[in-house]
């Protein structure tokens, strides 16, 4: 049980309004941490703070410390940090190029591909790990905009895997997908935790119970409770958690 990410007393603000309040939480290596909670509870802000996606937003500011393997992330070079902590967005965002180019895009820019002959292997491996290879292997050169939404989301996963990060952040990755595609994405998430650490933000309580090792419940910018998923869902300590997971509000 190694702490991959340690968050110490994190506060986040938009336009001076507090959206995350004194958050202290740990993410354990090779586990899936699911974060649940109603809208506006600060889940996505937390995720976007972890790989500093919010840094460009002028209305946003933060206080506190986040360590990745003991290294303070706010002192790290932004590109290096994002290479180690990648993010999958709620809507699939394939770049407007072919499937093949989508995968090799980031490794090329980051100088991870030294020999051209490695390219094909990287593409195949990434697509296989995202369980997309069999569906697209014959049309790697078609536009990524032309495949279905579920396939696009898995392509985005493959694109992340090609950079070989340490942590992957999933921001409600199945909100736009049908149940079958959702099942496929969840399946690959469980496979991925062998190699990666995963933080999953979801609106879907059942999804958290299906894939999470640990589950945290956020409410109004505060961490209410965090525990092993099985324990949290069977015997929540807080009344608010119980109300939320039993569907009484949210």
């Amino acid at each position: 049980m190694v702490n991959k990410i340690e968050v110490r007393d994190l506060n986040c603000y938009y336009n001076k309004r507090c959206v995350l309040e004194s958050l202290t939480i740990n993410v354990i290596q090779n586990e899936i941490l699911s974060i649940i909670g109603p809208a506006n509870s600060g889940k996505t802000t937390f995720l976007r703070t972890l790989n500093r996606m919010n840094d460009l937003d002028a209305t946003y500011c933060r206080k506190g410390e986040i360590y990745l393997d003991g290294e303070h992330i706010f002192n790290m070079n932004m590109e290096n940090l994002r290479k180690r902590i990648s993010m999958l967005f709620a809507m699939p965002i394939p770049l407007p190029m072919t499937i093949y180019e989508n995968i090799v895009y980031a490794p090329k820019r980051l100088g991870l591909i030294t020999r051209k002959s490695d390219q094909d292997a990287i593409v195949e491996q990434a697509l296989r790990d995202a369980s997309l290879w069999d569906e697209v292997k014959d049309r790697l050169n078609t536009s990524a905009m032309k495949i279905s939404g579920g396939q696009q989301q898995r392509l985005c996963i493959a694109r992340i895997l090609a950079v070989n990060p340490e942590v992957i952040l999933f921001d409600e990755p199945c909100s736009g997908l049908d149940p079958i595609s959702t099942a496929k994405v969840e399946e690959s998430m469980i496979e991925l935790k062998e190699k990666y650490t995963i933080v999953l933000v979801t609106n879907n309580v059942k999804q958290a119970s299906r894939v999470g090792d640990k589950t945290a419940f956020f409410l109004m910018g505060k961490l209410v409770e965090i525990d092993e998923t099985d324990k949290l869902f069977v015997s929540p300590k807080e009344k608010q958690t119980e109300n939320y997971i039993t569907g009484r509000f949210g």
């Binding site: 790989n51 996606m53 590109e79 290096n80 940090l81 994002r82 290479k83 180690r84 990648s86 993010m87 967005f89 809507m91 965002i93 770049l95 407007p96 895009y105 980031a106 820019r109 980051l110 985005c156 694109r159 992340i160 950079v163 990060p165």
Partner: peptide
Amino acid sequence: SFREASWSLGV
């Protein structure tokens, strides 16, 4: 979103 997707990969 294209920019964000690219940044999120460390580019």
